[in-house]
Amino acid sequence: MIDKFGKLIEDFSLSELRGGMQITAKEFVNKKITVQFPEERTPISPRFRGLHALRRYPNGEERCIACKLCEAVCPANAITIESHRREDGSRRTVQYDIDLFKCIFCGFCEEACPVDAIVETKIFDYAFLDSRKGSVMTKERLLEVGDNNEKAINEAKAQDAKYR
């Protein structure tokens, strides 16, 4: 009986509505946090695990030595590598594919790589519009991502270095 009476008062005093309006009023004057993607972007951790890239040494030589550790560690079996002996006698890949539809972006490949060749960049806004095949990042495309983003990759690595 008492309960019913209390509820009635609460309903008629519009207390819930006023509580809601209070938040609205506060946010009305507060600083806005909406990010206007893609013009604006949120800050991203140096450890962010986005699109993969294959890196080169400053002299242009590709880093990857076809050790296949990334292929072995990948829990999603997303990486496919074929290796050979290049004319100069060094061990290199002839094929390096990552199927991004299989990839779960765990970053294990980057952890496993003994020469920091495969890395995951901060890039996450990509799409494969052409076909299923587009999801397979070939060696050429991965190297291209690496070439275009070497500076960012380097910076991220430098930022993270002290925690390693």
């Binding site: 076809a66 050790c67 296949k68 072995a72 290796s83 050979h84 002996r85 061990r91």
Partner: peptide, 9 residues
């Protein structure tokens, strides 16, 4: 067999 495959494959 040089550089063809890793043994675990």
């Amino acid at each position: 067999f040089r550089y063809a495959l890793r043994t675990w494959q």
